[in-house]
């Protein structure tokens, strides 16, 4: 399928995009086939493209700038033995599984957008509209989360890759919040229940919010239609080209299998006592500071301290909540104030 330039040039005619429904497929294909598509899109060999996919198995996805060793819990990796992929887009570590359904846009400036964070907001209007048409009252929480009742139901990110812009995201049809929390590395085991509670509070799912999940066929139709309407293009069902399939096998997959790609070195740690900064959803996150013989933890909402905790260095030391009036909480509040906010 190809664009017909004469039609494109006709006044009032919407540009045509290709719709690729990869269906249920291996994690690497669900996550990264769009990177092979981006090359074709960037070269102008295929139209701008909307990809839909479901991963067939759980895996972990690191944001492009995140550190494999600092982000992921070694015990979780040992127990679960699931793939770890480094996406080319931004954002934080995500645990993904067959209960999460993906949408990915690859586009050029022409008929798409100029790229950058503004495109995220613009193209996420489609998934919001699709969710609402299916009974899920989602809304955008900037920069890129979709939320229901303030709880995250869709995480999204973007980037420029090989001459194309990419907006990628997915809906949580179900949410394994335990796995999401347990995949993340923490400096002390006593912090794990704290993180599990935070993830459970801030993350929801289609099933939890509505009581039932839509069938894939209905979901894909609603999503493709709404993304096309909001993006002002016409989606035409297509198939991957042989060049895209070849590039995926010969370049994309080997790169994602390369430990040097997966384990890119971390950014340098900023000076100070902050040892872990975990954004869970929007402004909500967990900060952990190194104290003298202890760790201090803060659950924050933007720059506001919600809860404060202390735990000693011993591996069996218990977590202690710091009350409103104590000096300990004031010290944690001071540390939070000196840390870049999630807001």
């Amino acid at each position: 399928m190809s664009l017909e330039p004469s039609d494109e040039a006709r006044p009032g005619r919407l540009p045509s995009w290709r719709l690729l429904d990869l269906g249920r497929c291996a994690p690497a294909r669900a996550q990264a086939f769009v990177e092979a598509v981006a090359v074709s899109v960037g070269e102008g060999r295929v139209p701008n493209t909307l990809v839909l996919a479901q991963p067939s198995a759980p895996y972990l996805s690191l944001g492009f700038h995140q550190s494999f060793h600092e982000e992921l819990d070694p015990g979780f990796l040992e127990r679960r033995r699931i793939p770890v992929l480094r996406r080319v887009e931004g954002g934080g570590t995500t645990y993904l599984d067959p209960d999460q359904w993906f949408f990915q846009l690859a586009y050029r400036d022409e008929g798409g957008g100029r790229g950058g964070p503004e495109d995220l907001k613009r193209f996420l209007r489609g998934p919001v509209a699709a969710a609402r048409s299916l009974g899920l009252s989602a809304e955008l929480r900037a920069p890129s989360d979709l939320v229901v009742g303030g709880r995250k139901v869709s995480g999204n990110a973007g980037g420029d890759w090989e001459g194309a812009h990419l907006v990628v995201g997915g809906f949580l049809l179900g949410a394994d919040v335990r796995a999401m929390a347990d995949a993340l590395r923490l400096p002390h085991p006593a912090l794990r229940p704290l993180l599990r509670g935070l993830v459970a509070r801030e993350v929801t799912s289609w099933e939890e919010a509505v009581g039932v999940r839509p069938p894939w066929e209905r979901f894909r139709q609603a999503l493709a239609s709404a993304i096309a309407t909001e993006g002002r293009f016409e989606a035409r069902t297509g198939a991957p080209t042989p060049a895209e399939e070849a590039r995926f096998l010969e370049e994309t997959l080997p790169r994602h299998s390369d430990p040097a790609w997966r384990e890119l070195p971390p950014a340098p740690r900023r000076a100070g006592s902050l040892v872990r900064r975990l954004r869970i959803a929007g402004p909500h996150g967990l900060l952990v500071f190194r104290g003298s013989g202890e760790h201090l933890a803060a659950i924050v909402d933007g720059d506001r301290l919600v809860e404060a905790y202390r735990v000693g260095d011993g591996p069996t030391d218990a977590l202690e909540e710091l009350g409103e009036d104590g000096d300990g909480r004031a010290a944690v509040a001071e540390l939070v104030a000196s840390t870049p906010s999630f807001a």
Binding site: V88, S144, A157, G159
Partner: peptide, 15 residues
């Protein structure tokens, strides 16, 4: 055209 550096803002990565 080879990516040499990257920056990230608001969950968007520019290579």
């Amino acid at each position: 055209r080879e990516p040499a550096a990257s920056l990230e803002s608001e969950k968007w990565v520019e290579h």
